[in-house]
């Protein structure tokens, strides 16, 4: 077993005494692709900033290749690069933006033009057309690709991408996704990617981490149900949907806690199952079906009122039950499967 690229233990990051990230233990291995999902404000960007060593944790240590590292450590310089959400371009030409890191690294300067051109080709920008463009003469997608090229040109050991495809045109998004994979395949770059694009992440990632309230609460196969929760007259804790139906859960630590229900505990059936003690049954319609070829599973999204439940079933089973969008389905889960955050 090799030393992991990252080993985090007891990491906490506070903003105004509020914990933005709280991770007991996490290891990432060389060459792996890790996805990060979670609602806005769940701490993804903060975690990525810590992994990129642009920010230091309030508590705990991060080992990089087995050694303790922090911002400006020589051990991480030029090896870890972060493409932040809405990247910042320097007030210089496209060429100068991409060559910036190379110049700081002080390599063979006669190689810069070649290296920059390669990086531009990789992100699909023609050097002839873009090299001399000023920073303000670019579309959002082009700017994002220039920013990515500035990272790729360094051939970093670890490339961290924070919502790389958010707010860019479809063509740029496709290029960016392809580049990330190229880096992983060609140079063995370790990738950590935060994205709302679940489908893409599940396609390419070895593992996906679900973040919520600064914690890693699972592998991305969880449904998160937000409160507030009320105690009904029958003693159960529940939340009313708009149509008057109720989602029942176990006793929450506080009425505003979020309930977490792993996908694996949810049963899907086309007929109303018999009610069991301490189990909750709910009906809804299939809102989306999509195939995940890497694992041969079908992701099913069921809408009940405004709440969407997601679960995965083997491709085989999906075929047998002949699922189709709009179909009325029943889901059930044991109340004991509900955990709280």
């Amino acid at each position: 077993m090799h030393t992991p690229v990252y080993h985090l233990s007891g990491i906490k990051k506070f903003y105004n005494r509020h914990p933005a990230v709280d991770i007991k233990e996490l290891s990432l291995h060389a060459g792996s692709i890790t996805g990060l999902v979670g609602p806005n404000g769940s701490g993804k960007s903060t975690l990525l900033n810590l992994l990129a060593f642009v920010d230091s944790p309030s508590n705990g240590t991060i080992l990089f290749n087995g050694r303790k590292a922090e911002p400006f450590s020589e051990a991480v310089r030029f090896r870890v690069s972060l493409l932040a959400q809405e990247p910042y371009l320097l007030k210089r030409s496209v060429y100068e933006n991409i060559a910036y890191g190379l110049k700081l690294r002080r390599g063979d300067s006669s190689q810069y033009p070649k290296q920059v051109n390669e990086a531009m080709a990789l992100v699909g920008l023609s050097p002839g057309e873009f090299s001399n463009r000023p920073w303000y003469g670019l579309s959002g997608g082009e700017a994002q690709r220039v920013a990515l090229a500035a990272r790729l040109v360094l051939k970093p050991e670890v490339l961290i991408l924070d919502e790389p495809t958010a707010g860019v045109d479809a063509d740029s998004a496709r290029q960016i996704m392809a580049c990330a994979l190229t880096a992983s395949r060609e140079w063995g770059t370790t990738l950590v990617i935060a994205s709302h694009n679940w489908k893409w992440l599940h396609e390419i990632c070895g593992s996906v981490l679900q973040m919520f309230k600064g914690k890693i609460i699972g592998n991305g196969m969880e449904n998160i149900l937000f409160g507030p929760w009320n105690q009904g007259h029958d003693g159960y804790w529940e939340k009313a949907l708009e149509d008057g139906r109720r989602i029942r859960v176990s006793t929450p630590p506080s009425p505003s806690s979020a309930a977490i229900i792993p996908q694996s505990f949810i049963t899907l059936s086309s007929h109303a199952p018999t009610m069991k003690q301490d189990e909750h049954v709910l009906n809804g319609v299939i809102a989306q079906l999509s195939l995940e070829p890497a694992t041969n599973t079908v992701m099913v999204s069921i809408r009940a009122g405004s709440q969407i439940f997601t679960l995965r079933i083997p491709q085989e089973k999906a075929r047998e039950t002949a699922l189709f969008p709009g179909q009325k389905m029943y889901i059930s889960y044991p109340l004991s499967a509900v955990t709280w955050c």
Partner: peptide, 28 residues
Amino acid sequence: IDEKLRITLISLGADKKQVFYSTIWEAR
């Protein structure tokens, strides 16, 4: 100047002195 500049400079390998100079240059 955006907080993102600092993040960008560090993640492109700038040390503290280079962060200072580049920030000054960005704020020119």
